[in-house]
Design a binder for these strands. Structure first.
Length: 566
DNA sequence: ATAGGGTTAG
């Protein structure tokens, strides 16, 4: 009789589909005492922990009544917690399990490492690592892959790399974990390197690995590898290459994004047009590409098409379009977007408000920018930076610096590299040499921000404009990064303002070595020589230009294209 | 029973 119940209940649990059914089975299990048997009991808990997160409470209520839960049941409970929004519960259970004397097995570790990675708790993660070593599970593929994932999520790439290098045999998931780790920590070139290693080892990538490496190629603007990966996709028969059935929007979007970021807008567009499916992200990617390359009218045309195709633009769409307006100084277009955002509530987000503000600041409508700025729910470093740069760009150097001082009074906001670009350019516009020095030094001393070549460029600009050419030259010669053409250009600009032909002549040699990709510095150089009557110099520079295939570019300006926005 | 994924402002 009992055996009969047992088998019947077990098979009901197998085919059970809904939570309601499960509760009925649970009731029968209690009445028939089948609840005492470990296998049906485990299946009962498994069902709860594998379904909706809210059913975890139900599992918990069963769990607390079990006298000696098996490790399987502990694992099941920990897994349930690890898949919730608050995965810390998994760590609590893991701790409790060990305090009660249960020893975790190789199934336990992935469930407990996932929450560590999610909440970035490397401390507990390391404890789990120790436990893995003590229990001798370090060779388990799942446990070690989870460990690497935990380390790279917690930004400890070295520990991840160490584990990865210790084992010579990884399957595609292990490789993918390392590749994603590099991508997510802004080390795209290493992601590409590891991907190539994986190919050399003869491990075939799957779609996830491919997506990751495409992101890396986009990041590095590595079109050569990107194309190669695209070929590989066709070889492996992934994505939309064949049937519509097997099309993968994510993969296709990653390909699109790779071409777009690498500047192959035409290829990107053709690919976009031929994609069998397009979601909001795909549209955003294409719109963002046009925006980034200053092709505002194409971006807006696509925006119109997107709405026509029945898709709702989201934050990312708005952010791209607004930044395009900001970049081109397209105020009325930006105003139109502002109105659209208000009307459709599509920008019910601080980030969109900040972006609207940035657009006003950059296009020179300082008042509107201020109005939005003061009404912002949360003023983050980007908001402050936008205001500072906007003010500096439009000749309000003093106000920009006041803004920066005010920002520093807010302890929750920490300036970054970009903030300092705004600050230094403000000093340059206002002609504040000492203040410029002060900020240039404090970015490293106070905030630990190592100046990049752009910052050196600003500083050289400040000094050169003020006529302190010797100091400027000294800075260029002692800077720890190899000065690029922009840095030399700033110095040369100072030579022009202050008629220093000798220094210009010295710079000429440095510049020709760098083979500039534009005609700007040559023209500057020629002007300096011409002004001083050094006609030989003028001729030399002209020959140099011709030799490098440059002609003086004509002046350019931007006008606002008329487009219907709302 | 267990591990890895795309767009977004300055």
């Amino acid at each position: 009789m009992k055996k009969h119940y047992y088998n019947k209940i077990l098979s009901s649990l197998e085919i059970c589909k809904t939570f309601k059914e499960l509760k009925q089975i649970h009731g029968i299990m209690i009445i028939t005492s089948v609840i005492k048997y470990i296998i049906p009991l485990s299946k009962l808990i498994d069902f709860c922990t594998n379904s909706e997160p809210q059913n975890l409470d139900y599992a918990e209520s069963i769990f607390v009544r079990i006298h000696r839960p098996s490790v399987y049941i502990w694992n099941s409970m920990i897994k349930g917690h690890s898949n919730t929004k608050n995965p810390i519960g998994a760590l609590v259970m893991y701790k409790e399990m060990q305090q009660l004397g249960y020893s975790p097995d190789h199934f336990t570790f992935p469930f407990v490492l996932k929450p560590c990675a999610a909440i970035l708790d490397i401390r507990v993660g390391k404890c789990v690592h120790n436990r893995i070593l003590k229990t001798g599970f370090e060779a388990d593929l799942y446990a070690s892959t989870s460990l690497i994932h935990m380390y790279v999520c917690c930004v400890d790439l070295e520990s991840g790399e160490k584990l990865f290098d210790e084992s010579p045999k990884w399957n595609v998931v292990g490789w993918a974990t390392m590749i994603a780790g590099y991508v997510n920590n802004d080390r795209a070139s290493e992601a590409i390197r590891v991907f190539k290693e994986m190919e050399c080892q003869g491990v075939d990538p799957n779609e996830i690995t491919i997506v990751n490496v495409l992101v890396a190629c986009a990041h590095c603007r590595d079109l050569v590898t990107g194309r190669w990966v695209h070929d590989r996709i066709r070889q492996l028969g992934f994505g939309s290459g064949r049937l519509n059935l097997s099309s993968n929007v994510i993969l296709d979007t990653a390909i699109l994004e790779m071409y777009a970021k690498c500047g192959s807008l035409k290829v990107a567009r053709t690919f976009f047009d031929e994609m069998p499916q397009r979601n909001v992200v795909a549209w955003n990617s294409m719109i963002g590409a046009y925006s980034q390359y200053g092709r505002t009218s194409e971006a807006f045309r696509l925006f119109v098409d997107m709405r026509f195709s029945g898709l709702e633009p989201d934050e990312a769409t708005m952010l791209s379009l607004l930044s395009a307006c900001a970049k081109l100084g397209a105020l009325s277009l930006g105003q139109g977007l502002h109105a659209y955002v208000e009307k459709t509530n599509s920008g019910d987000h601080v980030s969109v408000d900040t972006s609207v503000m940035d657009m006003y600041a950059k296009t020179g409508d300082t008042q509107s920018a201020f109005r939005i700025f003061s009404g912002l729910q949360r003023k983050d470093v980007k908001a402050w930076t936008s205001m500072i740069i906007g003010l500096a760009m439009h000749g309000h150097g003093k106000e920009a610096l006041n803004m920066f001082n005010e920002m520093q009074r807010d302890e929750s906001v920490i300036p970054d590299h970009i903030t300092y670009l705004g600050v230094l350019s403000a000093c340059s516009h206002a002609g504040f040499v000492d203040e410029g020095y002060k900020h240039f030094n404090s970015m490293r001393d106070v905030y630990g921000l190592v100046p990049m070549e752009e910052h050196y460029c600003c500083m050289v600009d400040i000094l050169s404009r003020a006529g302190k050419l010797t100091e400027a030259e000294c800075l260029v010669k002692t800077m720890p990064i190899k000065p690029n053409i922009a840095v030399w250009g700033s110095l040369l600009n100072g030579c022009e303002i202050h008629d220093n032909v000798d220094l210009a002549e010295q710079i000429e040699n440095q510049i020709t070595e760098l083979k500039p990709q534009g005609s700007g510095v040559y023209v500057l150089l020629a002007n300096i020589y011409a002004k001083a009557g050094r006609w030989q110099g003028v001729k030399r520079v002209r020959d140099l230009m011709r030799h490098n295939g440059f002609r003086k570019t004509h002046g350019w300006s931007s006008i606002e294209p008329k487009l219907l926005v709302s």
